[in-house]
Structures are given as C-alpha cells and as structure tokens.
Write a protein that binds this DNA or RNA. Structure first.
Ligand SMILES: [Zn+2]
Ligand SMILES: [Zn+2]
Ligand SMILES: [Zn+2]
Ligand SMILES: [Zn+2]
Lengths: 162, 162
DNA sequence: TCGGAAATTGTTATTTTATAACAATTGTTA
DNA sequence: TAACAATTGTTATAAAATAACAATTTCCGA
C-alpha cells in the first residue's frame, strides 16, 4: 500500500462518464431514462455543484416542462445508483468522480467559488466505521464535508463562480 | 496516549452546563442573554436534536413572542460560541457535549429515534486537515456525520422519539 | 443622569428547499 | 391489445432560512 487511493480525481469527461453510466445502469437492470440522463449530464457539465432549482432552470431552458418533483425524483434515482452525491451542508448536488463502486466520499467545498473536490480516503471511512462499531451503532451512511477556500481562491485568482 | 479522547460524553447536566456557559461567555466578553440562554437550555434539555421551528414552539409555550429570525439569531450566536452544533444533514441543532474548547465534532445520528452521539476523534479531524493541506485547501470547518441506527433501536427497544 | 451609539430583539414579508397527492403517460408483459 | 408497473407531469403545500426594517435594551461617555 504505497499509494492509497485518496487522490481527488479531476471531473470526468462528461461523454465518457455518461457512456459508463449507461453501461452501469444496464448491468444493474435499472433505467437511465432521458430525464435522468440529462440531469446527470447537467451535473457533470457544471464546474460547481447545483441545487435542485438550478437544475430545473436548465431543464426548462431545454424546453422541457417540469416542476420540483421531477428534478428531485431524478436526483433520488441518481443518488441511489451512486452516480451523484448530495452535499448536505449546501443543499446541492454534484456528479460523482468515481462512479461504479458505491461510496459516500469526502468533499472539500470552497465557500468562495463553490468548487468541490471529491476525496475517497478509506482511512477516514474506516475510522468512522470503527467509532460507530465501538458504540454498537450501525453505520449506514457517512456525510463528510470540509468547508474552506480552494487554492485558486486563496491566490485571489477567482472571485465568485457564475 | 493509552486513551484518546474519543469517548462520546453523556449529555451534560443542564444546570451545570448552563453555569459553565455563563462563565465562558463572561470570560469572552459576550452576552448570554435571556433568550440565548433559554434556547441553549431547550437544546440541552432535549433528548434529541431540534429544528429551529421546534425551538420556536417551545419559546412560544414559554409565553414569549417571536418569529423565525429570533431563533435563528440565537442559534447563530450559540454556534459562534461553540455551545451548540448544527447537524447539516438534518437541519437540526444539538447542544455541545464538550463546550469550552472550540471544535466541529463528529456525530452518530440515529435515523430511527433521532438520538445523537457526539464524538471528538482527533485522528479523524487530523486526517481531514491533512487531506485538505495536501491539496492546498484552507480548511475552515468540518461537517462529519454518520447516519444509521443506535444500539437501542437495533434492539427494537425504542420506536420513535417524541 | 442624560443622550446617543451599538447591540439585541421584535415584526412582517419573502425566499429557498423539499415533499404530498394525484393525474397522465410511457413501458412492459401476458 | 388489455392489464400492470414504472416514470413523468401537475398542483398545491410544507418546511427551513433569510431580508429588511422597527422597537427595545444595553452600554458608555458627556
Ligand atoms: Zn463519488
Ligand atoms: Zn474557490
Ligand atoms: Zn461539541
Ligand atoms: Zn435510535
């Protein structure tokens, strides 16, 4: 174990990622419908996480009709399939950087520009699992978010994301 | 280091805890007013975290007049002073179990009964700090929550909190 | 002790996030 | 094609959080 998989992957190329999502859903026997696929694409195309209503706006720009439940249901599906993550401290959603194997992830969230970096540090996950186990607590999910300033914003390079 | 301070402390005795909060605020030169003190008491008296509107209901039972901003401002003060924590995944607040030294804490949240256990595992905190530092990310706060089922609920002892 | 600035609380209105309930449509299968 | 399940559309509402401004209280110096 000379190189733990803690590296924050770059955002995936949306094309490849979507093709992979198609394959994954087919394997699993679930339907990545037009709507769900589009929501996933919107999230993967966005440089920052998006709220449900921001996604809804994009869908409407597409010409599609819809209301909040439309978006929330698509998001629910994508969460179940591990294709996106919910950032609970922000009430926002972001496309997963390593879809395929289910995980909760850890996130570095810039409070200035909104950019997010996804980590998957097994040591952190394991420590939390151990703490839970020591207390006979059945751990079902983890929400781990670090709030602060990204390298770009520390250098004053970027002010605020669009 | 034979015994790291990762033990989840029991909820403090509200009387003692409030006296301590009084002292802390005096030291710091900030005012733990009637309202703020009462909100803190409500949280420490509650077996489970409370939402802002639930706190507002209790305040109204007290006979006090008020609206959401009243509660949110009190909560903001208590958060700043490290006397309470916000559980972002639940939109709820809980009294801190180890007030005095500022920390973000880690929380085991039971999805069945709502009970919460507060941990303060320095190793987890440190790992997150290290991950952030490795990416030149300035970490300002951490949100660490584990969702699942508490020991009581696993044994079917308790169904749902009031 | 009086008056003015600052901090705190009250009040009204609104925004933002999320869900409930039911109808319409689409897909699947017998 | 008829029946059934899954998905999406639609309307309405609930729940969480904040904006803006007024009233009150506290603090401090004149
Ligand atoms: Zn991921
Ligand atoms: Zn940034
Ligand atoms: Zn605490
Ligand atoms: Zn429980």
């Amino acid at each position: 174990m000379f190189s733990l998989d803690t590296a924050a992957s770059p955002p995936p190329d949306p094309r490849q990622a979507l093709a992979r999502a198609d394959a994954l859903c087919q394997e699993r026997g679930v339907r990545l419908t037009e709507l769900r696929r589009r929501v996933l694409e919107i999230l993967w195309n966005s440089p920052t996480p998006l709220g449900a209503y921001a996604i809804l706006d994009v869908l409407r720009e597409d010409g599609r009709t819809g209301a909040p439940p439309t978006v929330y249901r698509a998001l629910e599906f994508l969460l179940e399939q591990g294709l996106i993550h919910r950032l609970t401290s922000q009430s926002m959603f972001t496309g997963c950087r390593q879809p395929g194997s289910r995980h909760d992830g850890q996130f570095l969230i810039c409070q200035d520009c909104g950019q997010v970096d996804e980590l998957n540090n097994p040591a952190i996950e394991e420590l939390l699992r151990a703490e839970a186990a020591a207390r006979e607590f059945e751990a079902l999910a983890q929400r781990v978010e670090v709030l602060g300033r990204c390298p770009d914003c520390r250098r004053g390079a970027i002010d605020h994301a669009a």
